[in-house]
Structure formats: C-alpha cells, structure tokens
Design a protein around this nucleic acid. Structure first.
Length: 275
DNA sequence: AAAGACCCCAACCGCCGACCA
DNA sequence: ATGGTCGGCGGTTGGGGTCTT
C-alpha cells in the first residue's frame, strides 16, 4: 500500500490528474467504495477523468478506474487461484509473455493486476524452483542467476527487464501480426481495426498491443478468442518441443516464422475450456 | 516476547495509442 | 497536421501482515 500523501504526488512527472492538490491517495475506505460502486452501476463505466467530480470523490480518475476494475466490479472473482487457473496462467504466459491484460482476458473473473501479482509472488518462484527461467520458460543454465531472481532486492530496482519474452523479443508487432496471419480466420483483423463480429471486441493496437474488450454479458467466442483457446491447449504438444520452437525466435525479427504457429496450432487439440 | 526478515498485493507511476477539436 | 485529453497497459512500490530467529 502506498502512503496517502498529496505532497509526494506533486512532482513534475506526475500525471496531471493525480498531481492536483486535494486529491486523496492511498487505500480506499468502505465509504469511498460504496460511492464509486453505486455511481458506476448507475452511470456506467467510462469518463473516468470527470467521474470523481460527478460522483463526489476526492480521487483522480485513474484511481477510480483502477479501484473499479480490480476490486469493485461485480464480475471480479476474489480468492484463491486454483490449480486449473494457475496452469492456464502458465500456459498463456509462456505464449504471450507479460501481457497481463491479455492473459486476464482469458481467465474469467481475474484481473490483470491480480494475475501479475500472482505471477510475481508465486509462479515465478515456482518456476525457478523447478529450474525454469520465469521470463523465458527456458531451463535455467546459470545457477548464479537463481538467487538474483528470487529476491526482488537483488534485482535492479526501477529498471525494466532487459530480457524480454522470447516471443516479444522477436518484435511485438510482428508477433501479433504473425499470430493473426498464421491462423485461419484472422485475416480480417488488421492493425488499428476492430473486429466486432463476436461479443469480444478485439483490437490490434500499434506497437504490437492486442486488447480484447469483453462484453460483460458473455456470449459467443469470436475468432480471436477461439484462437487463444487453441493456443493454450497444448495437450497434444510436448512442452519441451514447444519451448524449443519458441526459443528459436530469440534471434532477430526475421527469424520469426508464422508458419511455426500454424504447425503448432495444428498439433494443439482439446480446448482448455471445452475439456 | 521482541526484533528483524520476508512476503503479499493494493495502489501508484510513466508511458503509449486512440480520439477529437 | 498538431496538440491536448483520455483510457488502458505493464512495471514498480511500500505498508502491513506473517514468519523466522
């Protein structure tokens, strides 16, 4: 938890909405939660910047959005992450890297923040204990790296990882583009365009970002969702074989071969949610 | 029982792309 | 074409709880 402080946010780098004097920070009170929940349920999500004023909250819009998305939303599932969910997170992370939002989009009721926290506090350590590098899902070679990964204090603070996920390393943009190109049914998804044929609104962003905006009413899976379902099903694929192929992407972008994904997909069967 | 070490996770930060005037 | 605003993302922090010595 952060220290509720108005002065600490008054840096030149602070985002405007959070640097205003009089904006409350830190943990939310039950009263604030109630105000926010009632307001969003009544008025709907969106217009976060102006929401605090309209709702009568002394918070910045970002803080309101985060609180709603990660805690107050009725669809948020609280509590222990089960073995099935854990396995799914591992599979998705192996394929997608630290794309927590995308991973969360495939796990009903879980938020990106929750999955990110769970990964950092549980799964990464679990993989390390199994001799697997949690960043690459590749077997750890140098034992010296183990203690450095186990303790946050031993890693360089305030620095982003220099070792990207192997898939991302091949260039995020090319990866996503290749994913779409390399699977039937995705040729209609182009960068910057929305595919709204299903109830999920799939948006392929620039810089390789892929966002899946869910229809809270649920419904038919769109093609991208189906594609992800097939990706996370590797029951017909040897894990080591998959890893070996994924790690073939560690060389520059031109080594990324979308044909690989097609062949892998062909081998994948028995959808996770279907089974 | 006390103190220090360690862990968890809610919340914040900085950045990015989309959108709009 | 440009600049401002907004929503959303991943990375990071640090207070408080728990564990260990």
């Amino acid at each position: 938890m952060r220290i509720p402080s108005s002065s600490s946010s008054s840096t030149s780098k602070a985002t405007p909405c959070c640097s205003k004097v009089g904006i409350k920070r830190g943990p939310w009170t039950p009263e604030e939660d109630e105000i926010l929940a009632n307001f969003v349920q009544k008025e709907g999500e969106g217009r976060w910047r102006t929401l605090p004023k309209r709702a009568g909250l002394q918070r910045c819009g970002k803080s309101c959005r985060l609180r709603w998305m990660n805690y107050l939303r009725p669809s948020v599932k609280r509590g222990h992450i089960g073995p099935d969910e854990e396995d799914l997170i591992l599979r998705l992370h192996r394929l997608l890297g630290n794309r927590w939002s995308l991973i969360a989009g495939r796990i009903p009721g879980r938020t990106d923040n929750e999955i990110k926290n769970y990964w950092n506090t549980h799964l990464s350590k679990k993989l390390i204990s199994q001799g697997i590098d949690p960043r690459t899902h590749k077997p750890l070679i140098n034992n010296d790296s183990i203690p450095n990964l186990q303790r946050r204090e031993n890693s360089e603070p305030n620095k982003k990882s220099n070792i990207p996920h192997p898939i991302s390393q091949a260039s995020n943009y090319q990866t996503d583009a290749a994913i779409h190109q390399g699977s039937t049914g995705y040729q209609n998804i182009t960068e910057g365009n929305h595919n709204s044929t299903g109830n999920d609104d799939v948006v392929v962003m620039g810089m390789g970002r892929v966002e899946v905006k869910h229809d809270i009413n649920g419904g038919q899976e769109d093609t991208f969702s189906s594609f992800l379902d097939s990706l996370i099903n590797d029951s017909g694929v040897d894990n080591q074989q998959l890893q070996d192929n994924v790690f073939a992407f560690t060389s520059p972008a031109q080594s990324f071969n979308p044909v690989f994904w097609e062949s892998e997909l062909d081998q994948m069967s028995n959808g996770y949610f279907r089974g």
